[in-house]
Structure formats: C-alpha cells, structure tokens
Computed example of a mutant assay.
Amino acid sequence: MEFLFAYLLCNIAEVEETDKKKIRLDRKTALAKAEHYCAYQERSQQELRNKLYEWGQWSDDVEEIISELIQTNFLNEERFTQAYVSGKFKMKHWGKIKIRQGLKLKNVPDKMISNALKGIDYDEYLATILMLAEKKAGTIVEKDAYKKRYKLVSYLLGRGFENDSIIEVLKANGLY
C-alpha cells in the first residue's frame, strides 16, 4: 500500500511539472524574457528559437521576436560566434575542429564560423597544444614510447586539434 501511495505522489509531481511547462507566455512577456535571456549571455539564433518554443510561442511570433531582437542588437550571430570561439579556445582549450562542430550544432553559417576561427592567433594556438601536451605527458604512465605517443596524440585529437598541428608541435619540442 505504501508503495502505491509513493508511486501516486511521484506521478502527481510529474503531472504538475509538465503543467507548469505548458503555460504559454504572451508575445510582450516573451519578448521581455528573450531580451533578458540575450542580455545575460551571447546567444545564437537557434538557442533563442528553441527557448521561445519552450515558452510556448508559435512560429510566427518566434520569428518576429527574433527579428526584433536582431534590430535592437540584443541578438547578433556574429558577436555570438566570436564570443563562442574566444571562450572555448581560451577558457576550455578546445581546438578548431571541436569549436567548429560546436558552432555547427548551433546552426551557425559555415562562412561565419570560418571568419571567427581566423581570429585565433596561430602562435597562441600552437602554444596551447604544447601546454596541453606537456601537461598530459606527465600523467601518462606508459613505458612503451609508441603507446605513450599514441595516447598523447589521441588526447589532443579529442580536444579538437588538427593532426598536422599536433605532430608539428610534438616534433619541435621532442615529445614525438
């Protein structure tokens, strides 16, 4: 009997949660929330579009809100792309491949991605690869040099760096 009571309580909580999510905001409120959402952090158009649909907006309203936010400069895809590239490279130490994939998932145009990636300083890029390689090399406990090199290169590839750049840095610094 206790099990049945606990089960019913859980289901009631789930129903209440889904009811809360289905509340549809009016256009004016959705616009104000969207402005706040975009002012807090740079957003892509797709992120905002998803959020507006989550708030129960219809497609006509969503597109109108997005175009209004673009006109008022709350939403700027180019600015978002630059901030994303800069943040992922400088803070998370991601390579260009991983950054490109992240932006593609957010439906950013390829030309905009390429332009933003050109903003990464090549020397700083190689220095980041070296820093990550040295840090990782110290943690790999492998006696066989080939296996150690394989693990190191695999790690850097997983971080999104290009194979040519990895090999160039490792050879130049005696880690290959």
Rank of each mutant, 00 (worst) to 15 (best):
W58D: 15
D164K: 07
L105T: 02
K143R: 12
G174F: 09
E77C: 02
A127H: 04
N11K: 13
I65M: 00
Q45T: 09
Q101G: 12
D123S: 04
N107I: 00
E14A: 13
D61C: 01
S44D: 09
R24F: 01
K51T: 12
P109T: 02
K171N: 15
Y150N: 07
Q45L: 07
T18A: 11
R24W: 00
E47Y: 01
R27H: 11
K171C: 12
Y40F: 12
Y122G: 01
I113N: 00
I12D: 13
L170C: 05
L175Q: 02
L103D: 08
E142N: 05
G87T: 07
K20A: 15
K96F: 02
I166F: 06
A137Y: 08
I120P: 02
F161T: 02
G138N: 05
R159V: 07
K51R: 12
T128H: 04
W94G: 00
L126Q: 14
H36C: 11
E17W: 02
K22C: 03
E68C: 05
V62L: 04
K88G: 12
L117T: 03
K106I: 00
Y146T: 13
L130F: 14
R100T: 15
Y125D: 07
R100L: 11
L103N: 06
Y155E: 05
L132Q: 14
M112N: 02
G160I: 06
C38W: 00
A127W: 01
R79D: 13
S44L: 06
A34I: 01
A6C: 03
K151E: 14
W94S: 02
L52T: 06
Q71Y: 08
K22A: 09
E16D: 11
E35A: 03
R100P: 03
T18S: 15
I166N: 01
K28S: 12
D61W: 06
L175T: 10
E47T: 14
C10H: 06
Y53D: 01
R79A: 13
Q71P: 02
V85N: 05
R27S: 10
F3D: 14
M1K: 03
W58K: 09
K143V: 15
E124R: 03
R100I: 02
V141K: 08
G158H: 04
Q41C: 14
Y122A: 13
Q45D: 08
E168C: 05
T139I: 14
Y146K: 14
L117D: 00
G87E: 11
N173K: 09
G56W: 01
V153R: 08
A116M: 10
Q41L: 13
S154Q: 10
E162V: 10
E78K: 12
K147I: 09
L103G: 06
G174S: 08
T139N: 05
V141S: 04
G56M: 01
K171W: 03
A34W: 03
E14N: 10
K151H: 14
T29Y: 00
K135V: 06
G95Q: 00
T72G: 07
K88C: 13
T128P: 11
E54F: 15
I12W: 09
N50K: 12
V108A: 04
F3V: 06
V85F: 09
I65V: 02
N50S: 10
F74T: 05
L126M: 15
C38T: 04
